[in-house]
Design a protein around this nucleic acid. Structure first.
Lengths: 206, 206
DNA sequence: TTGACTTTTGTCACTCAGTGACATTATATT
DNA sequence: AATATAATGTCACTGAGTGACAAAAGTCAA
C-alpha cells in the first residue's frame, strides 16, 4: 500500500446533527437496496423508500440527488479515491507503471465492496439506465486521471496517447469487474485485472 | 469495402402510410435537434418538439421510446451495422485482424455522420445522462461482437481474452471519436483510429 | 433553562417524461 | 362505397424531481 493509506480518515462523531444525517443516509441506502432487491429497481418508487424509513420523499432528495445516485454513489467515490491516489503517487517510472498502480489500487478498493457490487451490478443487468450510469461513473474520471498522469511527465508523452492509455486501462478494469462478479466469491479482482493488464504486453500478434 | 456493401438497401417507397411515417420521423428528428441546439436539451420539452411538428406529444412517443432516443438512434443503428459486418465477414486471419476490420468499418460509418455527431456530442458534453447513454450505446454491442468473433475461431482463444480485446478496441473507437470531433472538419476518423490501434503493437514498454 | 440563531424536515404545488385506454381519423383492400 | 386496419389525438394517470415556505429540531451563549 504505497501512498496515503487513509484516504477516508474516520471523523469524530461531531454533533448530533451530523450523526443523525449519517444515520438517515445509511437508513435510506439500506432500505433502498433491500427494496430494489425485493421488488425490482423500477418497481420501487421513492415513496416506497421514504415510507420504509418514515421520511417524506422530499427529504430523500435532500440526501440523494436522484434515485440512481443510491446505486452509483460508492462507485463514484471509489473512482474519486483513485484520482487522489494517482495525484499523490510518487513519481512513477513510466505511464504504464503509474496506471498499473492506480488501477491495481482501484481493484483492491472494489474488492472490498463485493457484496454491494454484486447487488448493484445485478440491478444494472436488468436496468439499462443503471448499466449506462455505471459506465459513465467509471469513465467520467478519465480526464482527471489523464491530467494527473500528464502532470507526472509533462514532456515526452503525447496527450492523445495518454487519453488512449487511460481508456485502455479503464476497459481492463471494467471487463475485470464484470468477470470477477460472474465468478465465485473467492476470486480475486486484482488477479483478474493483472491477467488482463499483462495481456497488453503481447497485444498484437505481430 | 469487404463484405456486404448494402446493409441498408433502399426500399421501395411502398405505400402512403410508410412514406408518411418516414416523413413524420424525419420531421421529429429535425425539429428536435434544432430545438435542442437552440434552447438546450433539458430546456426543450417533448411538448415543444411536438408543437414544432404539430402533433400530439403522445404521438412523439410512438416514434421514439424516449426523448434520449432521438439522440442515440443513429449511433445505435451504426453499431448494429458493425455487428452484422463482423458476422458476415470472411474468415479472418486473427482476432486482431477481424477487429481492425470491423472497427475500421465503424469509423468509416461514423465519418459519414460527422455533422450529426458534432451536434449530438455537443449535447452529450453538456448533459451527463446523454454522455452516459452514448457510452452505453457503444458498449452494449460488445457481447454480440464477442459472440461473432468467437464463432470465427471457436478454439484457440480464451473467451475472457476476447471480451477484453473487444473492450480495448471499443475504447480505441470511443477515444478516436472524441478526438476526431474536437479536431477540425477535415480530419479523418479512420486515420485517428488506426493511429490508436497501431499503438497497441507497442503497448507495454518492456 | 431560556432565548435567539441555524439547519433540517414536511407540506404543497408544480413541471415534465412516459404509459394505458379508448375514441377518432386516415389509409388500405376488395 | 363498404369494410378492415393502422395511425393519431384525447384524457387520465404514475413517478421523478424541484422551488417555496412554514414547522420542528439542533446549536450555542448568557
Amino acid at each position: 500500500m504505497n501512498p496515503k493509506e487513509n484516504i477516508h480518515p474516520i471523523e469524530a462523531p461531531a454533533g448530533l446533527r451530523e450523526r443523525k444525517k449519517r444515520l438517515a443516509q445509511a437508513a435510506i441506502e439500506e432500505a433502498a437496496l433491500r427494496l430494489f432487491q425485493q421488488k425490482g429497481y423500477e418497481q420501487t418508487s421513492i415513496q416506497d423508500v421514504a415510507d420504509a424509513v418514515t421520511m417524506s420523499s422530499r427529504t430523500f432528495f435532500r440526501y440523494y440527488a436522484s434515485k440512481e445516485e443510491v446505486l452509483s454513489g460508492p462507485i463514484r467515490s471509489t473512482q474519486l479515491d483513485g484520482i487522489r491516489y494517482l495525484q499523490e503517487a510518487a513519481p512513477p517510472a513510466s505511464p504504464h507503471a503509474a496506471l498499473k498502480s492506480v488501477f491495481g489500487y482501484l481493484a483492491g478498493q472494489y474488492q472490498k465492496q463485493r457484496p454491494g457490487l454484486v447487488l448493484r451490478y445485478r440491478i444494472a443487468g436488468q436496468t439499462p439506465s443503471i448499466a449506462s450510469l455505471f459506465l459513465y461513473t467509471l469513465m467520467e474520471t478519465e480526464p482527471a486521471l489523464c491530467d494527473a498522469l500528464w502532470s507526472k511527465f509533462e514532456i515526452g508523452v503525447d496527450r492523445d496517447e495518454v487519453r488512449f492509455l487511460v481508456a485502455v486501462y479503464m476497459a481492463a478494469l471494467r471487463v475485470s469487474i464484470e468477470e470477477w462478479l460472474e465468478l465465485g466469491e473467492d476470486t480475486d479482482l486484482v488477479d483478474v485485472l493483472h491477467r488482463h493488464m499483462d495481456r497488453l504486453s503481447s497485444m498484437p500478434p505481430r
